[in-house]
């Protein structure tokens, strides 16, 4: 049993996928182990509200593990998996917009607590995950990415963090390659503007 596991650690991702497709759960486990940080990071950059990122990560990994047999070409895993991630992200965003928070007019507004609950803003500086991150620069980068409009954010995350080609990104987001090209270019210019002091070395 131990030998089998060690064997899996040295396998390439493509081989792990092939084994996982043939019901090899050790291969699947190893695959998840390798991918989970990547997925987590993706959601971390995609979702500016940063709620339920561990849940989203688990859900994405679960969908991947469940549907791995549907993937025909292991070489397309990266783009296929990112499709799952972005779909999940969009679903989540839609859910949030479907349930808009409301302020009741009739409610007793003299009580401060009511208003505070609804219009509560998260203190971006004191999130537990962030406090462990090294440096101011990292926070600056993350918030710079978070301030980008959503389509630009998705494009830049898929390009810079996941290393997908423009064609793959255009397939995932169902837009033309030209649009993706301009979105990425504009996102980069925005980021360069926001991070200017850190780029001159």
């Amino acid at each position: 049993m131990h030998l089998v596991k060690r064997h899996h650690k040295n396998l390439s991702r493509d081989n792990l996928i092939l084994l996982a497709q043939q019901d090899d759960y050790h291969a699947l486990e190893e695959l998840i182990k390798r991918e989970q940080k990547n997925v987590y990071a993706s959601f971390y950059y995609l979702d500016p509200n940063r709620q339920d990122i561990p849940d989203l990560t688990q859900e994405a990994l679960f969908r991947m593990a469940k549907n791995i047999k549907k993937l025909r070409d292991p070489k397309k895993f990266q783009s296929w998996f990112n499709q799952i991630i972005t779909n999940l992200f969009h679903d989540e965003m839609r859910k949030k917009y479907k349930k808009p928070q409301t302020l009741s007019i009739d409610a007793d507004t003299s009580e401060q607590s009511n208003i505070v609950n609804i219009t509560e803003l998260r203190d971006k500086k004191k999130l537990p995950a962030e406090s462990t991150l090294a440096g101011e620069l990292n926070n600056k980068i993350i918030s710079a990415i978070h301030t980008l409009p959503e389509p630009f954010r998705v494009a830049i995350v898929l390009r810079e963090l996941q290393g997908l080609s423009y064609e793959e990104i255009s397939n995932i987001t169902q837009t033309s390659i030209g649009t993706i090209k301009s979105r990425i270019a504009r996102a980069r210019t925005k980021l360069q503007e926001n991070l200017k002091p850190y780029l001159i070395q």
């Binding site: 486990e29 998840i32 990560t57 440096g135 990292n138």
Partner: peptide
Amino acid sequence: CVKKTLNEDYSKTIC
């Protein structure tokens, strides 16, 4: 840095 902040291992539970 962000990747390092994930300390949990989901592989078993998901399997």
